[in-house]
Design a protein around this nucleic acid. Sequence first.
DNA 1: TTCTAAGTATGACAAAAGTCAGTTTTGAAA
DNA 2: TTTCAAAACTGACTTTTGTCATACTTAGAA
Lengths: 250, 250
Amino acid sequence: MIYLSISRSTIYLFMWNTPCANCAVMSQSIFSEIDQADMIELDSKRITTLYVKGQKIFYPGQVPIGVYCLSSGIIKLSKLGENGKEQIVRFAKSGELLGVRALLSGKKYSTTSTTLEDSMVCFISKRMFFKLNLKYPYISQKVMKSLSHLLEEAEERMTSLAQRPVRERLAESLLFLSCLFKTGKTDCDDPTNGIISLTREDIASIVGTATETVIRILADFKEEKLIEIKGRKIVIKNVPGLKRIIKSYS
Amino acid sequence: MIYLSISRSTIYLFMWNTPCANCAVMSQSIFSEIDQADMIELDSKRITTLYVKGQKIFYPGQVPIGVYCLSSGIIKLSKLGENGKEQIVRFAKSGELLGVRALLSGKKYSTTSTTLEDSMVCFISKRMFFKLNLKYPYISQKVMKSLSHLLEEAEERMTSLAQRPVRERLAESLLFLSCLFKTGKTDCDDPTNGIISLTREDIASIVGTATETVIRILADFKEEKLIEIKGRKIVIKNVPGLKRIIKSYS
DNA sequence: TTCTAAGTATGACAAAAGTCAGTTTTGAAA
DNA sequence: TTTCAAAACTGACTTTTGTCATACTTAGAA
């Protein structure tokens, strides 16, 4: 297993051949219970690719021809608003499937997926995905459950965007991002000392506000000792304090 | 089939016994292709109820024990924000399933469902729903497809809430609501003359703004001959004009 | 028909957030 | 180590939206 990276600005793709059975996220993936024959077929047919930080896996307009299983890394899913401004819709973490929504709805991708760090991604063809879905009802169950969960999160986020002021939404996003970068999950027991390395512009397009507003409120949070700012990186320091901001409502 | 309604303020429930096969929405429902034996079982087990306008079908905290199939009517799904303010998350129309998200995610309902007009709703037990899901993979497919579609709409709406000014979001909502009340679908060829009968407060909690702001912008739209206001009802008059507002971005 | 609570409307004002223009800092590449 | 484009920051200002107080209208119940 060789990993060459001459330059960060040049993008290289690498094919891997670690067996699925050895994949770190196998146990949490939708394929955890398939039989050996199917596992072998999956192994031989899937295409594993290393996507370098900042690279796109798919973008709007493309027709889905399968799904992507995220073996490692973090992916941001975003779309463009009418005015051309990016909106980050959600994140995908290792163990999750990517591109299911578009494949199932039978339409082109409506979002762009961009890696936030180097990410290992397995491509599974539409045919293979549907075949396993048919053979193993538990897979459909898991997919439905995951979609249900995403939908609930989306509805929660809609409410937040519609009703809460920017300051609260930012505090909320910082905690969630801290968990994401610290543990790879969107919620965790203790987000303290999680290091958020995203541009202020990216943060703004999660929170749904202007970059300058993010910068100003971050400066407030720093002043209030809730966070530390180290260059471009944000470190969460006072979790209860941030939670208090989220819960405080007029 | 008798329908008694002594008073609108008193709520009466009626049990029906129209066979599923005669249900107006059978062809578009997820049960369209089940065999006769299952149809008979479904017929005997489902519980059909007329919910009067304004009545709740379920609300947060309740544990889902099945799904609801909407035979006729329109249902609003809403949740409360941290500040106690209602947020309308989406609408369900005849032919759609209700409560799938909660049932599949295995958690309590996170939304309240309220009828906007008298609605006929069939309850289908969890056991029956999962049994049919297992027997007919096409049902799982349809459910997944529907969840995917809802997720896409939710992501679209998130972007809109995060990026567009109230005026544009209101214009957008008026068109969509006009279709909903005119045709029972959330998009239609011509929303002209659709009659929206919702309170300004409800409209505000779709758009994500204050009631007064809705009232003011509606007055502008009336001034601009885009809509007519007849008492509490809003009638869409100039669809291209409203579309122009949505598309106009600085 | 009358009554009344709920809903609608309007103005004055305050607060929140966006925009623009400019300066400073940062970090990756040469 | 130096360079420089991208990113972060700051201030002044405008626009948008929310809030509160108050008056008016509507639609459904008695």
